[in-house]
């Protein structure tokens, strides 16, 4: 069966983002970019399903600027078979992304789409759920385990206070949480091979989707800064402060 895995190019998780002084957003120029960590987990899971013989083809999709090709190449180096880049200069919101992915899914007819549970830039945590809604498919969000048998995906989900297991009728959407797997590093030979794998480039208009945002960002500011507090000299002093000054224990 065919799998789709959307991958997003985001600021690398090790970068300390800086808010621009004009409050229009965060500084992105000259900043190291990488694949969204949850999307790496999604790709890894897809590759494992292919290695188990469950999946036959993995298509990695990215939506955004030309450089998203690099993100797709990373997915190809990890084991995806081909890529689709929806090239646009606007950074589309989850609703527009979900509409574009739906249009691609209508054409590609996958049995399963695995996404990261959220992107670490806008932290929306919405695209997977929205894509499931638009397709009318079942959704298994925040997955820590996926088993495919026949027409059913059994998904263990990370919920408040523990785990929940649901059975989804395929085709379905799964979003990857941290514990699903530990993504591999692409080997050099696989990085070389990935260069030869095909990437198709299309535009949002080819998918009949207007990527115009519904939300206007009025301003972006830094959160209130924490002041460094005081050093205490001993464990006894620490416990005393927590009890009698901060009153938290």
């Amino acid at each position: 069966m065919k799998l789709l895995v959307p991958v997003k190019r985001v600021v690398d998780y090790n970068v300390k983002v800086r808010v621009k002084s004009d409050q229009t957003g965060v500084e992105l120029s000259g900043v190291k970019m990488a694949m969204n960590p949850f999307d790496e987990i999604a790709i890894e899971e897809a590759v494992r399903l292919k290695e188990k013989g469950v999946a036959t083809e993995i298509v990695a999709i990215s939506i955004g600027v030309t450089q998203c090709q690099e993100t797709i190449r990373t997915a190809l180096a990890m084991g995806a078979d081909r890529g689709i880049l929806v090239e646009t200069d606007v950074s589309p919101e989850p609703l527009a992304v979900a509409k574009m992915l739906k249009a691609i899914a209508d054409k590609e007819q996958p049995r399963l789409i695995i996404l990261g549970k959220q992107a670490i830039d806008d932290d929306m945590n919405a695209t997977g759920q929205m894509l499931a809604a638009l397709l009318g498919w079942a959704q298994g969000t925040f997955a820590s385990k996926i088993t495919i048998e026949g027409d059913t995906a059994t998904v263990t989900r990370e919920v408040d206070g523990g785990l929940e297991t649901v059975a989804l009728t395929l085709p379905a959407i799964v979003t990857a949480d941290l514990r699903l797997n530990e993504p591999r590093y692409a080997s050099l030979p696989n990085i070389m091979k990935a260069r030869k794998k095909p990437i198709e480039t299309i535009k949002p208009a080819d998918l009949g989707v207007d990527p115009a945002p519904r939300l206007t960002t009025l301003k972006v500011v830094e959160p209130p800064k924490r002041q460094a507090g005081k050093k205490v000299g001993s464990v006894a002093e620490l416990v005393d402060k927590l009890r009698n000054e901060a009153k938290v224990i």
Binding site: V17, P94, L95, D122, D123, R214, L215, V220, E222, P223
Partner: peptide, 29 residues
């Protein structure tokens, strides 16, 4: 388009939400 994880209500259309894991606060309308 949903507005996820708001941390403040400015008015009926405008909300504050953390982005970049709380390293920035965006006011969105």
């Amino acid at each position: 388009q949903p507005i996820s994880d708001i941390s403040d209500v400015i008015d009926a259309d405008t909300f504050v939400r953390p982005i970049y894991a709380g390293n920035a606060l965006a006011t969105v309308k």
